[in-house]
Design a protein around this nucleic acid. Structure first.
Lengths: 144, 144
DNA sequence: TGCCAACAGCCGTTAAAACGATTATCGTCA
DNA sequence: TGACGATAATCGTTTTAACGGCTGTTGGCA
């Protein structure tokens, strides 16, 4: 069963991504957040720091793992009062989303533990190999 | 916003894995399979080539991305007659699973397109960098 | 102006994931 | 033997993902 290199690569990527994501999901579960919700909040915080408001669709475009139904994802976040929606006055089709104070606080509580988890997950590589890996991952991602 | 290296690494891994998985999922959708179902079939084919039968739980253990409900996953595959279940005679608690002829045929139809897709996804790296990447991924995966 | 394609977001419905609790069987040990 | 904990799988239920169609809005253009 001589599987080609690309196949092994694919599996190795999926395996690593799955393990890391699982641990992150476990951490987030403690705060009642799913990975998708957490990513949305992070995107919104990033936008807020730029003084920008984002349309629903723009949020979706910036997610690492795309969600086909932004509406309900935002519904759940809005119900927890972690984000706020507002109908745009310029273009009444778009709905802008922003993170609330409560949402920012929740993210802030997660920053340190998340950092620590990532270091625990990947720190053993060492800086040099970590940089190498990052570069190769980016090279693999581009162009496709 | 000076995020540490480990954080960028985590994101890069998730981003790449997500893109690759999405394209694979699209390919599989043409045959009516989900990624989880496809992985189960591959595990079962591997076992069959070894002349082994696997218990439900053993299948789950070998999946790259764990499924918390093997029963229903197998239900769906069994309904399509891609796998067959049998109650073990030695230990009547365990249910052994095996891939059917129909399942093997379906996998065989997918082998070539999947290979081609993976080469298209990752071939541009070249053999040397691909090996490097694989090695780093394995190093990152181990020990955690 | 009035028509129409393009667009943003919403919603109805079906399928699948996630979480617990439950059933049946086994091995062990008093 | 009979009770007990451990184990394998299944099932009930709730939540979330996924897919497609639908509504309202906009901008262009005849």
């Amino acid at each position: 069963m001589n599987f080609p290199l690309e196949h092994h690569l694919f599996l190795a990527i999926q395996r690593l991504a799955s393990r890391l994501a699982q641990q992150v999901a476990d951490l987030l579960k403690g705060k009642g957040l799913s990975m998708a919700q957490y990513n949305v909040l992070r995107v919104l915080r990033g936008a807020a720091r730029n003084g920008t408001e984002l349309a629903c669709g723009e949020v979706g475009d910036r997610l690492i793992t795309k969600d086909p139904d932004m509406t309900r994802l935002l519904d759940r976040l809005e119900k927890q009062e972690l984000v706020a929606r507002a109908r745009s006055t310029e273009d009444r089709r778009v709905v802008t989303v922003s993170i609330t104070g409560k949402g920012s606080e929740l993210l802030a509580e997660l920053d340190e533990p998340m950092l620590e988890l990532h270091k625990e997950q990947l720190g053993h590589l060492g800086e040099e190999r970590a940089r190498e890996l990052l570069e190769l991952l980016q090279a693999a991602t581009e162009r496709r």
